[in-house]
Design a binder for these strands. Structure first.
Length: 258
DNA sequence: ATGGTTGCTTAGCAA
């Protein structure tokens, strides 16, 4: 079973690339982030014609997440089920057989001394609360998405420059550690313990040309699920060419049938 | 990480 995650940065402008990528890599499940479109503007027909079902939580202008799947999925949650309603569309949870999958778009956080960073950390705390309430580390569970966290300096090409950013600071890496402590494993790092792999390059500053990259898109899995991971890669090629997303897709293959 | 770029929306925000 191939599971992938990709921040497409507008599903409408990336429609052609998305369909081509589905055809090329044939994921069983693809989690998307930053749709930047309401449900009605999602490219339902193109995705269906590519052979995929879709569950979508859209939003005008910003955010928006989806899960595309070869087999139909049952939607378990759109946004957090308890507490104040999150006005931003950043979470979608689905089930396919014994497997539960979340597509997450963690807030970026802007600057460390900002309300947005407070929201980012509170949002991550709500993810943990969601896991505590609804899941167990012993089940087959995968969290996919743009976490806007580079877990270690190995995940940052120019770590000194990014050290005190919202993607790399101690506070946010502490929040990442709490996800691992809950019982989640970074599948890409498990398979490639020492490789410099990046998933995002800023449009600004010629980030890709200079390979000023960070690994902030992740596939986390519970131990029984991570034990089935066989292969993992970042599709850096997808960042090239005309009108790429600023993120590349991340892929993990599991010895798991649906 | 000043600016730089991209996307949505249509001047300014978010990333």
């Amino acid at each position: 079973m191939r599971i992938a995650t990709w921040n497409v940065n507008s599903v409408r402008i990336r429609q052609e690339r998305l369909v081509a990528w589905l055809g090329r890599y044939q994921p069983d499940l693809l989690c998307l982030q930053e749709l930047k479109a309401v449900d009605a503007d999602f490219p339902w027909d193109a995705v269906r014609d590519a052979g995929y079902h879709a569950a979508v939580v859209g939003q005008k202008t910003y955010n928006g997440v989806a899960v595309l799947s070869k087999q139909p999925c049952e939607v378990l949650a759109k946004n957090f089920a308890v507490g104040d309603a999150d006005p931003q569309a950043r979470l979608l949870e689905v089930r396919q057989g014994p497997l539960r999958v979340l597509s997450l778009y963690v807030p970026n956080g802007s600057e460390i001394d900002s309300e947005k960073f407070v929201y980012k950390r509170a949002w991550l705390a709500r993810v943990l609360d969601h896991l505590d309430r609804t899941a167990q580390p012993s089940e087959l569970l995968v969290l996919c998405g743009d976490f806007n966290i580079a877990p270690t300096d190995l995940d940052v090409r120019n770590s000194a420059a990014w050290r005190d950013s919202v993607l790399c600071c101690d506070a946010i890496r502490g929040d990442w550690q709490r996800l691992l402590d809950w019982g989640l494993i970074d599948c890409v790092r498990q398979i490639h313990p020492q490789e410099r792999l990046f998933s995002w390059w800023d449009y600004r500053n010629l980030g890709f040309i200079k390979n000023d990259g960070l690994r902030i898109d992740h596939i986390l899995a519970t131990a029984p699920c991570a034990a089935l991971a066989r292969e993992a890669f970042v599709d850096r090629e997808e960042r090239k060419g005309d009108k790429p997303s600023d993120h590349a897709p991340v892929v993990v293959d599991f010895d798991l049938a649906v």
